[in-house]
């Protein structure tokens, strides 16, 4: 059973063979299994399963699998709040800090994949990484970073400014 393989299929149809234990870090994958295993048929467990992930592209899925595989050898220490530091290397182990040093698009894709596949520690890590991108930025810098056009109207802006003590 330990050696059982799960096939994860990306948006493009590319299939990745993943040890069952690694794939099961995703609650989405796990639930797919338990739905099928209703009859408690233990023999089923050795059968190779395929889980389609139509929201996740192959490069992102590859990263997700990399994360889940590493997690088997070195569990990520849970992130403590309030954050003791503003740098990733002081909040999680080195491997994990390096893992999220990726370009912004990949990082957001990873957040979305972790959210869709329901992998709690990966969602924590990637959301933490986004919050660190936000850290220390001004409202204008944030607008540029997130490519935001829907600004507050001038009146709304003025009202928000009035009570902006915490943002200075």
């Amino acid at each position: 059973m330990e050696d059982a393989i799960v096939k994860l299929t990306s948006k493009e149809g590319e299939t990745f063979d993943v040890p069952r234990k690694v794939a099961m870090m995703s609650k989405l994958v796990k639930d797919t299994f338990s739905d099928d295993d209703d009859e408690d048929d233990e023999e089923d467990e050795t059968e190779v399963k395929e889980v389609p992930l139509p929201n996740v592209t192959a490069p992102v899925l590859k990263k997700v699998i990399e994360y889940c595989t590493h997690y088997q050898d070195e569990e990520m220490t849970p992130i403590q709040t309030p954050l003791k530091s503003g740098t990733l290397d002081e909040l999680v182990q080195a491997w994990y800090a390096n893992f999220v040093k990726v370009d912004r698009n990949m990082l957001f894709d990873l957040v979305a994949a972790a959210n869709f596949m329901d992998i709690k520690p990966l969602l924590d890590l990637t959301c933490l990484a986004v919050s660190i991108l936000i850290k220390g930025k001004s409202a204008q810098e944030l607008r540029q970073m997130f490519n935001i056009s829907a600004e507050l109207s001038p009146e709304e802006q003025a009202e928000a400014q009035r009570e902006n003590a915490v943002a200075e």
Binding site: I79, L83, S131, K137, L142, A165, A167
Partner: peptide, 16 residues
């Protein structure tokens, strides 16, 4: 949820 008060304060002024 990971942002501190200062960063949340900037975010709420950045867009709707």
């Amino acid at each position: 949820g990971y942002c501190n008060g200062r960063d949340l304060g900037c975010l709420v002024r950045s867009c709707r």
